[in-house]
């Protein structure tokens, strides 16, 4: 639940989602669910020259299972809050 809650707080921010097929998509986080499926708005593929496949896609749903990384905006990371939430979760909270 920790990361589901975290990503819900991040809605509206710009993120870059890197997939396990090496595609990187930048966009505004629109929503997330408990599987960490992600919906992005105003998307653009980071290397559009190499990957023109999604040129006419502006909004997309990314299946959580194919996500490798999400690059987070520094202003969207509260380190102390994350530590507390992690300790709470580790206790089985």
């Amino acid at each position: 639940m920790l990361f589901f809650s975290y990503f819900k707080e991040l809605v509206g921010r710009e993120v870059t989602v890197e997939l396990k097929n090496d595609l990187a998509i930048r966009g505004t986080l629109h929503s997330v669910d408990q599987y960490l499926n992600i919906k992005l708005e105003n998307t653009r593929v980071v290397d559009q020259e190499k990957y023109p496949h999604m040129l006419s896609v502006r909004n997309c749903f990314i299946r959580g299972s194919v996500v490798r990384y999400v690059q987070l905006p520094p202003e969207g990371v509260d380190v102390e809050l994350l530590h507390d939430a992690t300790r709470r979760e580790a206790r089985g909270g």
Binding site: K50, H53, L55, S56, R58, C60, F61
Partner: peptide, 22 residues
């Protein structure tokens, strides 16, 4: 399934897919 994208019809019609190599 990796990605489900909403296809923007207007945008799509501006792309010359028949000459797009990748």
């Amino acid at each position: 399934i990796s990605i489900v994208g909403e296809l923007d019809a207007d945008l799509d019609s501006t792309v010359d897919w028949s000459n797009m190599k990748a």
